[in-house]
Design a protein around this nucleic acid. Structure first.
Lengths: 352, 352
DNA sequence: GTGAAAGCGCTAACAC
DNA sequence: GTGTTAGCGCTTTCAC
């Protein structure tokens, strides 16, 4: 009997409060939701009784009835990746401060899991979805389906312009441009680039920024100074091998991201080339290891936390628009400005 | 009208399927849930109609009725911290493979946010909670409340033994013991320790492991060889200053975690002390920067992903026990074995 | 193997 | 300012 009572005690509903207070559940519900037409006295009594009985509102019932779950779905490739952990940090902070919960899913870069995540979100009736597209994804029908269903959707970091979905990205072009120009200003004259898969916009934009900076500063652009890498330490090392077999050898590298830059530094160390006095290096992503290696790595910061905040804000706009019975007209693209961190690896050339 | 239809098309329910198939919603529900007493033919017809109508089951309604949300709440201090991102990776992977969704909350090390998270979880009627206690938390009443309410709860990494809650932690003692013994075996003879806040079990365990390894190997234990740090690069540097002003100077350090170890290495570099030939260093956490700095940092890996998997598994056990109408008797504590990564920083002393 | 009926706990018209 | 009523979409006895 004791246990039975105990078990029941977990299931206090607004009806229990209503009964004890000689009210209807409707009034209790209104009081709990701070409805304007309920007297302050009633509200106080209800509040008091609620906390006395340790009442916890049943969000599930409330969602079912109201059609709003106050929950958003978030898809990231992997929580293990620094970058996404940091974005999620920004998203969750903002969301919870506005009364929203987040359901987190990892795509593991797989289209199948990405679709599964969306199915789950749909059946959980999330109010909106924040997503970073999986690398593997080439068929976007599951995202298009969301648009059809009028489910608010915002992409962050990895988006697809053809889908016409609001997004928050970083200005890759400008980051690359600034990084390259920085190397030029530090006195490096033969600046090479280790790129990433060129079919991904992020990386082709960085390539364009690199080229534009050279042109603007009247530095000769040399096609052979571009090495096609794949975002890894290995490709950075391989790039060094390639560069040092060219007829004209570069004296600096703008790497498409930090692990590639790290590979470049390792390759240079093996060849006993001094960084930065003989060779400058700058990366992209501002990974945590960058400031701790020696020489410390200059890099372009991607404003991850801010990205999360902005993405959630954009999603909120869409959700509110939708509630206002308006067509989702938000066709916005927020482009964050990259932040440059100049460290030792690009401190300047000592010319011979 | 077009829009109207479109809008309605988002709200296909089992009743719609039932009507079109001349069945009852009960049968459709059973068919969709693969109930054994429903004929294969009916199941097939229902499935076909469901996907034709693009039916998505309403998990909210289902949860309300069945009392199971198939959702668990996860509290971590911050998604920005590598360690927790990695644990979440393990949790989410396992959870989603078993049909569970995770709601993520960050405590930001604050008791207030921690309590707020639990409130939210309770009102979302999660089937269980996975938590890593916030540093700031000294009053555990919100966790005790969960026990009272019979809500399955498992701690990971940061737990409190007094609460008698199942947990998954790493064997800090053994990790520290092995790390210290490794230094001894590599020929270092005066091994110091930079510790963390001693009121936290994690860190006092590491201290104990360090002392035990010295004793077991008959290396003299010297109280002055313990420097009280605070998990930062700065405290590592300060420790070096302290150690090099001792009458007897150590020749190796076991640091309580990697950032401290990094600070030690920086301090040594400033003093032009060679690592590892003159001084050995080993850390704890296996942070990603460790293998990329020079010399690379030896460290103790905390099996983060595995920790997430085990924590979810333990929670599942509790959830199933509960459903079986049994008292929650699971009083388990899973202790993971640390993994040692021996790198350059502890490669051995060249004695003069 | 399927139907009828009830209800999970809440909210929201519509009353007055 | 509060009550009445009617569901939200699903699951689940209890029938037969």
């Amino acid at each position: 009997m004791r246990t039975r009572l105990h078990r029941l005690s977990q299931k206090i509903t607004i009806h229990d409060i209503a009964r004890e207070l000689n009210l209807t559940s409707a009034t209790v519900s209104r009081a709990l939701n701070d409805h304007p037409r309920i007297s302050t006295e009633t509200k106080d009594r209800v509040q008091a009784k609620a906390s006395q009985l340790k009442y916890k509102r049943n969000k599930i019932a409330s969602s079912l009835r109201s059609g709003k779950s106050h929950t958003i779905g978030v898809i990231i490739p992997s929580a293990q990746m620094n970058f996404f952990g940091s974005v999620v940090h920004g998203i969750e902070n903002t969301a919870s401060s506005m009364g929203y919960s987040i359901i987190l899913y990892q795509s593991e870069e797989s289209s199948v899991l990405e679709k599964k995540a969306i199915e789950t979100f749909l059946s959980a009736r999330v109010d909106g979805i924040l997503a970073s597209i999986a690398k593997e994804t080439t068929d976007f029908s599951h995202y298009q389906e969301l648009k059809k269903r009028n489910v608010p959707l915002v992409f962050f970091d990895r988006n697809n312009d053809d889908l016409n979905v609001p997004s928050v990205v970083i200005n890759d072009f400008k980051g690359a441009f600034d990084a390259t120009e920085h190397l030029i200003q530090k006195g490096y004259t033969r600046i090479a680039h280790v790129s990433g898969a060129k079919h991904l916009k992020t990386f082709s934009d960085r390539l364009s920024g690199y080229i534009a900076a050279l042109k603007k500063n009247n530095v000769e652009f040399n096609e052979s100074f571009i090495y096609q890498g794949n975002l890894s330490i290995e490709s950075g090392k391989a790039a060094v091998d390639y560069f040092f077999n060219l007829p004209v050898i570069p004296d600096a590298v703008f790497a498409v991201e930090d692990f590639t830059a790290l590979g470049v530094m390792k390759g240079l160390k093996e060849r006993k080339i001094n960084v930065p006095s003989a060779f400058g290096v700058i990366g992209f992503a501002n990974e945590s290891f960058g400031e701790h290696i020696s020489p410390s790595l200059s890099s372009v910061d991607q404003q991850t936390v801010q990205m999360g905040k902005e993405a959630f804000g954009l999603l909120m706009d869409m959700i509110n628009f939708k509630n206002g019975e308006l067509e989702i007209a938000v066709k916005e693209k927020i482009v964050l400005e990259p932040l440059l961190f100049f460290r030792e690896s690009s401190a300047g050339k000592i010319n011979g």
